[in-house]
Design a protein around this nucleic acid. Structure first.
Lengths: 196, 196
DNA sequence: TTCGTCATGTAATGGGTTACATGATTAC
DNA sequence: GTAATCATGTAACCCATTACATGACGAA
């Protein structure tokens, strides 16, 4: 349903799947992965972490043992994936439903493609491509109907929009070809050090 | 502040500046101008029209006179710009503040460039370009720092993002050159038929 | 007669942004 | 000493999406 918050959930779970982390760093990594613009605020991140914790997918533990404290600046809250959280992540990453190729989630899904099964990768890429081609069709319809009405700037705007979508389609084609070229490359879950 | 709703306000005022309209058509025109995807819902549009009406910028009048009713399907509510609303639109369209070149508003501003003064047009285009160049810098920073960590898909994602931004910068360069080439072309307000 | 489009709304829900509040540590 | 960065949160406000509710008209 709420695909924007689903995407955030996946992103957080995915990053914690690599290593335990505290909130501040989580936010930086999120920014680095999805583009530094579109940074989410703490007002979004912390409540979201709280929710994940309530559902039992992550644990919050105050980093207070000596070794850590010696090197650290301040008591930080380290979030760690629980086994249930790992399962949840693997469930999310296995899904290739329509939501996965919408604007809100596609980037995040791609960012975790290394942890995604090969067939799922292809289905998502193809779903995304189909979605964009649908868009292309709609835009040309509108363009055809508005030919007289539109002014110079409106046309320019739509031309550029069309162009961007076409380029994304071509980019997807390349990614899909690359996937097909090596249908193997289905890496193991790569669990982090502390098992259990 | 709320740049997304500011953009909606400008768009509605701008369309009504061309001709009085009812809600349903307003929505279609909005979709046609800004891309058929990103259509806004009635749950957004109607409350927004209500707000504009409360502030005295538009009037709602039930289309119920005979001539209209004969041709029409059902009593529709036609929204019309008030003189205060015209002033408001002209005020908004004169503004070239930082908000005008953010993602949320830039498209809408461009869509009404025909009603925008030539200097304002150039300032907005240049502001937008500067904004994107800032982005470019941030992305390359991140890219430089993540060179080892990133996997194939993350890199691909960022490459494509970078590429899109660079293309938009080039597109803006063309628009700016075109503006400079004919610094005249500052059309009159073009008021609609009924001169209140 | 049934489906698609025209047409107008309301209510609930969710959640994102912004501003606020606090304070430690590091680099200049 | 002071500015920037590290670090964690809360509260209020706004508003967008979604689902719901209703109904007329035109075409197949």
């Amino acid at each position: 349903m709420a695909s924007r918050s689903d995407a955030l959930e996946l992103a957080v779970l995915g990053l914690l799947h690599e290593a335990p982390m505290h909130g501040y760093e989580l936010r930086k990594r999120l920014g680095a992965a999805l583009g530094p613009f579109r940074a989410l605020s703490y007002g979004t991140l912390y409540p979201s972490l709280r929710r994940l914790s309530e559902r039992g997918w992550i644990t919050e533990s105050e980093q207070s043992d000596d070794a850590a404290r010696a090197a650290s600046r301040r008591a930080r809250i380290v979030y760690e994936l629980t086994p249930a959280g790992q399962e949840r992540f693997e469930l999310l990453v296995r899904d290739a439903g329509p939501a996965s190729w919408e604007d809100d989630s596609f980037d995040v899904r791609l960012a975790f493609f290394s942890r995604t099964a090969a067939e799922v990768r292809i289905r998502i890429l193809e779903g995304r491509r189909a979605r964009l081609e649908e868009r292309l069709e709609q835009v040309s319809d509108v363009l055809a109907r508005n030919r007289e009405r539109a002014d110079r700037y409106g046309l320019e705007l739509q031309r550029h929009g069309l162009d961007s979508v076409q380029r994304e389609v071509r980019w997807l084609n390349e990614l899909i070809s690359a996937e097909r070229a090596r249908p193997n490359a289905d890496p193991p879950p790569a669990p982090h050090d502390s098992e259990a």
